[in-house]
Nucleic acid binder design. Structure first.
Lengths: 217, 217
DNA sequence: GAACGTGTGTAACTAAAGCTACAGAACCGG
DNA sequence: CCGGTTCTGTAGCTTTAGTTACACACGTTC
């Protein structure tokens, strides 16, 4: 089991042994809530497969996704809580087919003190999140929803330009409502850079979409 | 000189020597831009007196304050850039009477590897910022400007309830414009929980202000 | 193939925030 | 005490986003 973990950080033999002793594997076969807001955090979450989604709620009950934790990443908020003895400040949901290694807090702290790989990984993870959050904040300050949606679509399109999400889900990611997404989509479709189907949006002109609101007359 | 620094972290003799060799002190007697967006970061900034203000711009040229770096804190963005070789993603301005210790990047990295005090401080600083940013994001999603302003005032009032800022500065902190602040203030003043003067806002009923928008009819 | 659940499309209305423009008060320096 | 500068107060308009309310399309299942 520790094999899957060691592809992510190189440890000294002692560190390895310590890790092997305490780590727990959790597997999710269907979407499931992992952590609730205000819950006490018991350890570091390292995703080995699939992804976790971290989100909060808007005042009207709409979900707003903060970020994803993909394979090879740890949930930084959990790290935060570990180091500062805080309660978890958001909700976390596992996607289908997700596997997570749970490293108990005490063990993680001890690893952090001695293993440079763990130090590096921790700082890198925190740094990355800081930048993502700052970027997000700046965008909210400086872009209208249409630009944010355009950017989101370009960013999340697969190799064929498809984004496999319902409008409801898109709305959740941007902290808005479905109707607004539909309205903005109409604009995109009118310009011919996107087409829409049930549960999927297809980006047909990423170039145009990426510069939405900048090159417009 | 290193004396002022060592009140913030305890180092081993070797660490202390290394630090003393490389650290530079900078003093600002009047507000001054310290870092521009896109600039390369040369080291870690540790504030020993006064404060730094980190901000971006909205698309229409309004400033929006991201956070402050107070005495005893380091600028986390600079740390980030150091560890990830990135360009600085915002602007930084020093207040009047501010003193900053600049620890060159190479030295900071070496200290980080060996000194647990530096590791701790780094992780703590990053963690704190992550929480602040998340909180900020959540508020933008979930509160109207009036609530955010109310909260800001309550938060920044001194022991006498005074907030020594112009409306322009308040606007900058919330990423909005002066006119909007004036409009919201009118609401607060009408309810009698705030009074306004030139360059100062006085909170007279913090209770009411803190619950603004929750207890309103 | 009828009924139901889930997802999309659209229109009209409301609320929030931003923008423009100006009037007047407080402060500062000569 | 006069003129310039900075700050505050107010009004009206525009844009953006959220809300309400429905119609319809697609799929599934019985």
């Amino acid at each position: 089991m520790a094999d899957t973990l060691e592809q992510y950080f190189e440890l000294t033999p002692q560190g390895s042994a310590l890790l092997a002793k305490g780590v727990q594997q959790k597997r999710f076969t269907r979407p499931l809530q992992v952590i609730r807001k205000g819950q006490k955090v018991s350890g570091a979450y390292l995703v080995t497969q699939g992804q976790l989604r971290v989100y909060t709620y808007t005042p009207h009950g709409n979900e707003a996704t903060l970020y994803f934790v993909r394979a090879g990443e740890t949930c930084v908020l959990a790290l935060n809580c570990l180091f500062n003895d805080l309660l978890y400040p958001a909700w976390v949901e596992a996607d289908a087919d997700t596997q997570v290694a749970l490293i108990p807090g005490a063990i993680y702290r001890r690893l952090f003190e001695t293993e440079t790989a763990v130090q590096d990984m921790t700082v890198k993870a925190l740094s990355t999140l800081v930048f993502r959050l700052m970027d997000e904040l700046e965008q909210i300050h400086s872009c209208h929803l249409d630009q944010r949606l355009a950017r989101f679509l370009v960013h999340h399109a697969d190799s064929e330009g498809k984004v496999q999400m319902t409008q409801q889900q898109l709305a959740a990611h941007l902290g808005t409502t479905r109707e607004v997404i539909a309205r903005l989509m109409r604009g995109f479709i009118a310009e011919g850079c996107v087409s829409s189907g049930r549960g999927v949006v297809t980006v047909t002109d990423a170039e145009l979409l990426a510069t939405w609101g900048k090159t417009r007359a």
